[in-house]
Design a protein around this nucleic acid. Structure first.
Length: 469
RNA sequence: GGCCCGUUCGUCUAUCGGUUAGGACAUCUGGUUUUCAACCAGGCAAGAGGGGUUCGACUCCCCUACGGGCUGCCA
């Protein structure tokens, strides 16, 4: 049974660098989608073998990022560092099998070898003199365990995204599996962990494509089943260059702080470098059904904030009012903004229906809902001030008594306002401007009827009266 | 230097030898409207370059250019 036929197990294996990179987030998303869409498992492993760089906070940041994105993993988070004994055990088993050997060459010797090769203008791979040495000649000195890699023939990778990729074995050296201090190298640790965790599909950045060949050698050395490889292209910045700090937001938490909804983020990231016909806007459930490895593109994709915003706009209008209110509070916290008061929560949920169709991000949503959140006195901006001239003062004054006894429905309000406009010989548009100014202190707002409905009769009359004074 | 990967509208992409090269975002024009957003109609816009193979190439092969990755006792 090949790896492709086993129940799907995918994994995301970031190294803890301090935050969840947007590219890593997409890799995690692809793994999650693939597993979830097939009733499989999605595992999480932290590649924390480099103790010099490791901090617990870095792991926390990754978990937080994944959680925010809604990517839930199965089982406990695996620490690669915690499994170092097992890695060493496998290295020694390779030794016993003869697929690895002890190498006593010092780092100085290796450096000298490279320097010499470079001086000759060549770039020869290091060839350990200990590969075929007689154990009787072993010195009493520290050693590393190296893979006894085949020197002829080729190693073939069947990649679900990149196709068949062939590597000449003489291009691959005897990689170190266990360091002289007994700790595993990345190359060994990944293979051992993926095997032990039962990973069937390795979906990761294509910066690992070359590594797949070396890792295949380790699988073979242990007679383990090679997983299905899927090396996906990295994400680039808007200028086509590798995404880096200078492009702005690289960490997923920055996107949360900018107010993008997680569902929109998932949708956008899924479509970035993957396609399924003309499907553009979809839920994660739909994405799980559609997602496959064949739809992944082979070229690096660029981040496009306009499209991100557009996608997020669709999702905000698709989300329920309650869910939006909840997620919006998470945004406020992430952005370091003051939390909503209980009264504001009520007002916001009442206003939600008329603002969510016109917002692409949470800050925009709040901005559009300002009319409901502010309290009197309403401060008018320059444009609003202009709309509130002497003539409109009079109209506003004549309007308030008629609102006093009106039934507070859109239909009746519409009737009254159109009436008033007609009486004053102006179009409704001309009346709407000062109404907006009085009600919201600005001229760009949701519909005047919606605003009146949301804030209620008393508040409406109070604001109109205040503005006309 | 060696090895490996990539290259369709400005951007994300569809096409899996035969299409007026399709969709989405962006942009432009018009319409609708109560401002904005939304919405509707329409426009602009693409196969890196050069060789092959083929009756026929965006699609298959080779070369070049450009971009990226690996080449660590980093991951």
């Amino acid at each position: 049974m090949s790896a492709a036929d086993r129940p799907v197990v995918t994994r995301f294996a970031p190294s803890p660098t301090g935050y969840l990179h947007i590219g890593g987030a997409r890799t995690a998303l692809f793994n999650w989608l693939y597993a979830r869409g097939r009733g499989g498992k999605f595992l999480l492993r932290i590649e924390d073998t480099d103790r010099e760089r490791y901090t617990p906070e870095a792991t926390t940041a990754i978990l937080k990022g994944l959680t925010w994105l809604g990517l839930d993993w199965d089982g406990e988070v695996v620490s690669q560092f915690d499994r170092r004994d097992r890695h060493a055990e496998v290295a020694h088993e390779m030794l016993a099998r003869g697929t690895a050997y002890k190498c006593f060459s010092t780092q100085e010797e290796i450096a000298a070898f490279r320097a010499e090769a470079e001086a000759r203008g060549s770039y020869a791979l290091f060839q350990s003199p200990w590969r075929d040495a007689d154990p009787a000649t072993y010195p009493d000195a520290p050693y590393v365990i190296r893979m006894r890699a085949p020197r002829s023939g080729e190693t073939v990778i069947e990649d679900a995204v990149q196709g068949t990729v062939r590597f000449k074995n003489d291009q691959l050296d005897d990689m170190i599996c266990l360091r002289s201090d007994g700790t595993p190298t990345y190359m060994l640790a990944v293979v051992v962990d993926d095997h032990d965790m039962g990973v069937t599909h390795v979906i990761r950045g294509d910066d690992h494509l070359n590594n797949a060949a070396r890792q295949t050698m380790i699988y073979n050395a242990m007679d383990w089943q090679v997983p299905v490889w899927a090396h996906i292209p990295l994400i680039h910045g808007p200028d086509g260059k590798k995404l880096s700090k200078r492009h702005g937001a690289t960490g997923i938490e920055e996107y949360q702080a900018m107010g993008y909804p997680a569902a929109g983020m998932r949708n956008y990231l899924t479509r970035l470098g993957w396609a399924h016909g003309d499907a553009e806007i979809f839920s994660s459930e739909e994405a799980m059904k559609m997602f496959d490895l064949l739809g992944i593109g082979r070229a690096p994709a660029r981040l496009d904030f306009k499209k991100l915003e557009n996608t997020c706009g669709h999702h905000i209008s698709m989300t329920s009012d309650a869910a939006l209110l909840h997620e919006l509070q998470g945004y406020l916290a992430a952005a370091g903004l003051p939390a909503l008061s209980e009264a504001q929560k009520v007002l916001l949920s009442q206003a939600m229906y008329c603002v969510k169709d016109r917002a692409k991000t949470f800050p925009e949503l709040i901005e559009k809902a300002q009319f409901a959140l502010v309290s009197r006195p309403i401060v008018a901006d320059a444009a609003a001030l202009k709309a509130l001239d002497a003539v409109s003062h009079g109209i506003l004054k004549s309007l308030t008594p008629r609102l006093q006894n009106a039934s507070w429905t859109k239909a009746e309000l519409e009737l009254i306002l159109n009436d008033v406009a007609a009486e004053n010989g102006i179009g409704f548009g001309k009346l709407a401007a000062p109404l907006r100014a009085a009600l919201a202190g600005r001229t760009v707002t949701p519909s005047v009827f919606d605003m009146m409905l949301v804030i209620g009769r008393e508040e409406t009359i109070a604001r109109l009266t205040e503005a006309a004074a």
